[in-house]
Nucleic acid binder design. Structure first.
Lengths: 272, 272
DNA sequence: TTGCTCCTCACGTCACGTGAGGTGGC
DNA sequence: TTGCTCCTCACGTCACGTGAGGTGGC
């Protein structure tokens, strides 16, 4: 015979509320051992307390229900450990993101004293280049950018490329407006030859408004705002893709504050 | 004349999506400077980019919309700084809670090798005591407990009380079942005299099942589970309030692993 | 028998994202 | 005129909490 207890008793034992236990039953995370077919009463086996204890701790660590389900269903201790470790790594990344967000807030609050960066105008000539493109969600763009930039720098060395300028990027406005869109990173070269992951393109000529952003890419909205303000003040019409050029990046220095990014927003004079 | 831009342009400038901007308008966090009465089109002043920048950074730090509204409406820089600092403190506390949750998970995963703590039976005699009571939410109980326990220890000294036993607690089962209920902490003394915040009570006699929990209060569900299991195995009926006695607590050692808490769950033999 | 426990809906929360279906502006 | 931008609903998400209204069990 299995020893079972009522929801109330099980709630007191596990410090999970009755409402929470009902929810875990509903989503199939922790199902009572037996349900009285007449009254609908839930009966939990006392052995289920160990599952409840693990669930409570993983929820305290904000692990999603679906992931906890995987942990409970894990076949081996190693598999279980792997899933848990993956979540702990995820927490570390969250923590690092928070640390950087605090820095970004500080930067903003301190920047009021800074001289505003000037905006200029210029025509970017057409450029042949070797490019890596993707359709991506805005949340993932920073990670993709970091990885791909490094990859392109490595490619320059391994393929003996002679770059005719700094590595650049092309971003669809939809990326900012709708949180998803296409992104491209490219090395300008004389005669691009496609590789497994990079393809030859020609970056078209464009008349642009230009600004240089100094610092982390997390703060790049500051420069975008200034550029947009310039464009609005001069009654220009902004184009649907934006270019960036990485004048100083991770390949030059690990101190993000010294990074320099040139942002070029294509514009056309508005019809009067 | 104010220079305004469309939502799309403003989204690209601030890196906030159009959907997000519409939501911020709806909840009154960031209202467009002008709305075309005919088309309903939103027009943002370029100056509003600074508010958008602050909002984006505070949201990255998970500050609730309502709190961000307060920051934006702050009258002075000092007031604004105070609100922001309060949130950063809150983040620190969250971080500490996460750190402790990781420890608690480790404790659980390592505890499988431990000898299970034995459960005993005993009658607790009636005790006069000086008590502090409150109706509280389960989420706040750990903080309240820490503060009040310290307060009672201080009271013992300042009022020259001769305690007839360790400080104890009485908890309504509703606290665990429904996430809210009454909690009491008490010092057993011969002739309790009420103070501003403490009142005399008599802890009633009770027949109880008893376990000693060693370690942090975060892990006390482990002991509760064992007690509940014992009660179920012996077909006992559990009472609606649970007592705890703090045999070793923060006043003895700051190393939580050395804390000892005796948990007494009132029981009556079930009618056959 | 009383009152306590337990049950099932339905709805609310928070900060948006996802369509559907339709209109304005160049 | 076309197609692109913008609009407003209505609904979904996630992990529960909050009642309302009703029944089972000792």
């Amino acid at each position: 015979v299995i020893t079972t207890v009522t929801v109330g008793q099980f709630a007191t034992m596990t410090h999970l509320s009755i409402k929470t236990l009902r929810y875990y039953h509903q989503v199939g995370l922790l199902e009572p051992r037996r349900i009285d077919p007449h009254s609908g009463y839930r009966h939990y086996s006392v052995d289920q307390a160990t599952d409840a204890q693990l669930i409570r701790r993983l929820r305290d660590l904000r692990m999603p229900i679906a992931d906890i389900r995987s942990v409970l269903l894990a076949q081996s201790t190693e598999q279980r450990q792997t899933l848990i470790r993956a979540h702990l790594d995820h927490l570390e990344q969250e923590l690092e993101a928070t640390r950087l967000a605090v820095l970004s807030l500080r930067t903003l609050l301190d920047s009021s004293a800074d001289l505003p960066t000037p905006v200029t105008r210029g025509t970017q000539p057409a450029q042949p280049a070797l490019a890596i493109s993707t359709h991506i969600h805005a949340d993932d763009v920073l990670d993709w950018w970091t990885d791909t930039l490094q990859h392109l720098h490595a490619l320059t060395v391994s393929e003996h490329l002679t770059a005719t300028g700094p590595i650049g990027g092309i971003y669809d406005e939809a990326l900012f407006r709708h949180e998803a869109g296409s992104a491209t990173l490219f090395i300008p070269v004389e005669n691009p030859i496609g590789t497994t992951d990079a393809e030859p393109i020609v970056v078209p000529e464009a008349d642009t408004a230009i600004i240089i952003h100094r610092g982390s890419h997390r703060d790049i909205d500051l420069a975008y705002s200034r550029l947009g303000t310039y464009i609005a003040h001069h009654s220009l019409t902004a184009g649907p893709t934006i270019r960036e050029q990485y004048l100083r990046d991770a390949s030059h220095t690990s101190d993000e504050r010294q990074w320099q990014t040139q942002i070029c927003w294509p514009v056309t004079a508005a019809t009067p």
